[in-house]
Design a protein around this nucleic acid. Sequence first.
DNA 1: CCGAAAACCGTACTTCAAGTACAGTGTTTT
DNA 2: AAAACACTGTACTTGAAGTACGGTTTTCGG
Lengths: 215, 215
Amino acid sequence: MGKGLETRERILAIAEASVLAKGFGATSIDEIIADAGITKSGFFYHFKDKNELARAMLLRYVRSNNHLFDDVFGRGTQLSDDPLQAFLIGLKLLAEVMADLPNGHPGCLIASVCYQERMFDREVRAIAANSVQGWNARFRATLDEIAKVHPPHEAVDLDTVADMMSCIVDGGIIMSKLMDDPRRLEKQVLAFRAFVKMLFAPAPASRPAHAVSAA
Amino acid sequence: MGKGLETRERILAIAEASVLAKGFGATSIDEIIADAGITKSGFFYHFKDKNELARAMLLRYVRSNNHLFDDVFGRGTQLSDDPLQAFLIGLKLLAEVMADLPNGHPGCLIASVCYQERMFDREVRAIAANSVQGWNARFRATLDEIAKVHPPHEAVDLDTVADMMSCIVDGGIIMSKLMDDPRRLEKQVLAFRAFVKMLFAPAPASRPAHAVSAA
DNA sequence: CCGAAAACCGTACTTCAAGTACAGTGTTTT
DNA sequence: AAAACACTGTACTTGAAGTACGGTTTTCGG
C-alpha cells in the first residue's frame, strides 16, 4: 500500500469509529485530523468534502462486510453439501465472529447513514440501499436452494426471511450496544438460526412436540 | 394543556422529526425555533441545553411507545384467553399499526441515541437502556405465560426471544426506511409472529411436515 | 541522480451554529 | 395588584466547516 493510500485508510478508519460513536454531523474534521496526525490541508487533499468522505467510508464498510459473508458462508458450503446445513454452519460461524469482537460490534454504518439520511446526498443513500438489497438477494438465493431440498413447514415469504437476516443483525447490534453486552448480538444470530432450522429442518421423529421446556 | 406545555410539546415534536432525519448533532436549534415560530431565548427557557432536550424527547418517545404496546397487547388479551393467541393477535395489530403510518415509521429514537451515544450524557443513555430493558422484561413475562401452557418445541432461551422482538422492530424500521418501503417493517413483525407461532403452537395433526411449499 | 508528480504543511480567511447573558415585555394566575 | 409564567431582543463568545493558495517534502520512474 502506497503512502497516500495508507493515510487515506487511516482517515477512513478513524472517521468510521467517530461516526459510529457520535454520528456523522457531530464528527468534526478537526478531530479526525488530530487523531490521524495530519493537517486540514492534508485531509482535503484526500477528500474534497464530507460527502466524499461518507461515500468512501460506506464503500469500505460494504466491501469488508461482503468479505465477511463470503468467508463464513463459503466455509459453510465447504463443510456440508446440504444447503440447509451449510447455511446453518455459516450462521454459527457468523455468530462466533460477532461474539469475538474485542469491544463488541462497533456498529453498522448502513444503519448510521439511515438514521442521518438528510445529511447525505442521493449517491450515498443509493450505495447504502443497494448494498442491503444485494445482501438480501444473496440470502434469498440461499433460501431458495434450501427450499428446493427441504420444503418449509410454514407458508412464509422467503424474501421476508432473507430480509430478516439483516434486520436481526442490525437490531442485535443496537441491542448489544445499548445493553453493553456483546453476547446479545451473538444470541440474536443464533435465534435466527433456530428459526431457519425450525422452518426447514425435517421434524425429528425421535422428539415429540411436548418433550422440551425452556421455562 | 397550558400554553407553555403546548409550546414545549411543539418543540419536542419538531426536534424528534429532525433528529430522526439528520441525527442529533446535525439538528440545529436555529432550525427548530424557525419551525416552531419562537426565538432562541424561548427555546432556552424550556430547555437549558441540548442534553435536556434529548432527555425530554426520549422520555416522550418511550411513553408513547409504552402506550402503543399497552394498547395492542391489551386488546390481544381482551380477545383471547389463551396467552399464545393473545400475543399473536397483539403482534398482528402491531404490524397493522406499523403499516398504517402515512409516511412509514419515522424511526426509533432509541436506535438514534444508540448510534450517537457520545453525544449524550450518562442519564440519557440510561433512559434508553432502561426502556428497552423494560420492554424485554414485558415480553419475557408474556412468553413465560405462553410457555406454561404451550411448551416450546425447540430449546431456545426465552430472554433471547423477548429481545428478538425489539431487534426485529428496530431492524425492520431501518430496512423499511432504507428501501423506502413501509411494508418491509410490517412483514418483519409478521415473520416474528410466525416464529413465535412455530415455536409454541401445537403441531396441527392435519398438516404433515412436507405438505407446504413457498418456493 | 534528477525532475515531476504525489502527498502533504501553514496561514489566513469567511460563514454559520451552539450556547451564554441579561434586560425587557406581555399575559395569565392568584 | 403582585407575582409567576412565557416568552422577545440584542449582543456576545466559541468553535467547527469549508475555501484559498502558496510553499515544502517525499516518492518514484527514467
